[in-house]
Design a protein around this nucleic acid. Structure first.
Lengths: 241, 241
DNA sequence: CGTGGAGTTGAGTTTGGTCAATATGCGTGG
DNA sequence: CCACGCATATTGACCAAACTCAACTCCACG
């Protein structure tokens, strides 16, 4: 668990070591939350931000009539809702898609440390900007790619992000979410996720049945998905040791 | 033009007046760029950020095969590429969708002023976080709304954003972009934009033919689009005087 | 005038959605 | 240990939204 904290801190680019230590000192103990639980409710006004230590958290937006969209996914090592420091009211919910462990940092502390340490603030700002880059990529995929390619793209992205925090290797990683959740991430129906998966499976590109995922043909998969990790590079500092 | 600068500065929440003046001092003269021009090229490493004073700028991502997606739209008063201060390499292009006027601020200056004035940095950070909120809303629309509703939603958003900077009133505003650009914003084809527009027009909801836009039935339109401006509220400080 | 870009419309196709039945797998209580 | 029940996954048949292709119109501009 503490490896992860180290990785998270390490990729705060431009921060001094003193900054990192000071931030680390503000981070609370990890708290376990079980799958399906809402971590932060839409409309609420959080007084703290969270660092994800294990599991997957989804950024969930709801439409009155029949729509649920996961507009972002956090993997271990991510700050989950740094932006709530700046935007009082949550315009979406944060949901534990799997069992998760989160550590918290109070906004009061964050505000103080940011004021005292501009380089750290800048690094945290940068984290939220990278989230934005990922978001843009999702939007591009959502707007201009077919369902199967979008799915392939998401697998590529997840692999790269998880590898960067030591949670994926040899084209394998664990993704214990439902096809329904995947559907909400991709903007398609669960039924169609299933069919798209079948297509990719038949092409021998990957294997995933709600738990361990294996990418068989990385090269082909990235080509199909037109996946270019530049938009992630900011998070690509390889895990220390 | 300088009204606009004043509005932009005013909505930098939490900044002191001294901060605003100091920032204003760094902003260069407006430069006119004509429609269609690329302001910042994908892959480049900008040394400055831009403030949009007039016209519309699109954040354009390209897919190798047949895909162009506008993943964000800036209206006058927006900082166009603040995030390039933090992410060296552009992962998308910035394109003038109409004739525009932009003022620039050098990254060197920005970095210095941010270090000296944490509250200003925080306010600028907040601006990029609001961009993220808009992005999430687009993703929600892209993923879970039908084309016509998505189009309606975009009109609602634009009206609210433009009204906030004094460029829309009485449910009217000017939007001199092509249907093709609208298509790339919505993730649909130009032909389908045309048909969706026809639908909305027939329902008497709005009028737009590539120039002035008029929303006839705001209430109905917002309902159709399930438009709730909370995600924009951070930018809703009404124009001074 | 006439040329090219943008908008409009129709006809036919494709992708993904809907509805519904069946399968699978797991945790609980008997 | 088994049976039941629920949630998730899988598949088929049919439907609807959006795409493709192509023709035609409408301007603005030279």
């Amino acid at each position: 668990m503490h490896d992860l904290l180290a990785i998270t801190l390490k990729r705060l680019e431009g921060a001094a070591d003193g900054d990192r230590d000071a931030l680390a000192a503000l981070i609370g103990e990890g708290r376990a939350v079980s799958a399906g639980r809402v971590l932060v409710e839409e409309g609420s006004r959080p007084q703290l931000s969270m660092l994800l230590l294990s599991g997957f958290v989804g950024r969930v937006s709801i439409l009155n009539e029949g729509g649920r969209q996961i507009s972002g996914l956090n993997v271990p090592g991510d700050f989950v809702d740094l932006h709530s420091l700046l935007l009082k009211k949550m315009d979406h919910s944060l949901v534990a898609l799997t069992d998760v462990v989160v550590a918290t940092i109070s906004h009061v502390d964050l505000r103080l440390i940011c004021e005292a340490r501009p380089q750290l603030m800048r690094a945290l700002w940068r984290e939220t900007v990278i989230d934005g880059a990922i978001n843009r990529e999702w939007l591009l995929a959502q707007g201009r790619m077919a369902a199967a390619e979008r799915l392939a793209h998401r697998f590529c992205e997840l692999y790269v992000r998880l590898e960067a925090v030591g949670l994926a290797a040899d084209y394998r990683f664990d993704l214990p979410i439902t096809q329904s959740d995947a559907a909400d991430m991709l903007g398609i129906t669960p039924v169609h996720v299933n069919r798209s998966l079948k297509t990719l499976r038949k092409q021998g590109l990957l294997e995933w049945r709600g738990g361990p995922a294996v990418i068989h043909e990385w090269r082909t998969l990235t080509q199909l998905a037109q996946f270019d990790p530049i938009y992630l590079q900011a998070r690509l500092i390889t895990p220390g040791a």
